[in-house]
Amino acid sequence: MNTSTVHAPIAPTAPTALTMRRGDPPVEAAIGGTRHAGTPEVVLDVRGLSVSYGDRVAVRGVDLRIARNQVTAVIGPSGCGKSTFLRSLNRMNDLVPACRVDGSVTFHGIDLYDPGVDPVEVRRRIGMVFQKPNPFPKSIYRNVAYGLKLAGIRDDLDGRVERALRQAGLWDEVAHRLGASALSLSGGQQQRLCIARALAVEPEVLLMDEPCSALDPIATAHIEELMSELARRLTIVIVTHNMQQAARASDRTAFFTTEVGADGLRTGVLVEVDATDHVFGNPADERTMHYVTGRFG
């Protein structure tokens, strides 16, 4: 565990939450959150996670618990390994040759990096939305139905597609032209289509990698509104460069930064994770304070 990591005060009962197994009833974990002050359950438990590409360590020693039905924002300067960390949560890093992951990511009591785990199944349950909208060059309908067809779901395709589009707040805009090419939509609509596509397979967790960085402020506001809506039924982890976005749209915030090691190489580390209000209002670490107040270095 990285000694520089500062955790929010966690009640003494918390550690039991980290040993949950499949079938156990949701264990109470006193993880702070503004929206759901009740008893959020830990969905993803990251322990001692390090990701390296070849010899280069991108992120080192991350310990982080992600609570159910919350929006967790991951912020930090460029190159601090935010995206790498996010991609390690649904094994998208497997696609990068020479990528190595150490430590564990526990999801329903199962380590996602256990040799017996099928990464395809992991990605089916932990969806992802990318920085750049990436709809398939197919019709709007077929984009949303894509994941369903992959999963072999044939019944009530129309209903599922409609529900996903409604959840993504896109239904009213595209209902009359589901057969039109997804590429005919605007950038913001395309990104919401990608969200709808990810929602259609009903994932438990949605990972969003700077989903608004290619969008204008109105489209961004649309998606932020959508996130708090979606957090009622699933768990969201969002990487963002936009601190106002993190402050506005998240319940908890994790701040990453780069550290220069003894070898002179830069490595991303988690500095602190806490309720968003705390991170922005009263950060525990000096580096976090410098970053959120706009003074870094």
Binding site: R123, K132, N134, P137, V201
Partner: peptide, 13 residues
Amino acid sequence: PDHLRHANQALGG
């Protein structure tokens, strides 16, 4: 583009 391949994989393909 690779992002289409990644989209497939992110959807459990």
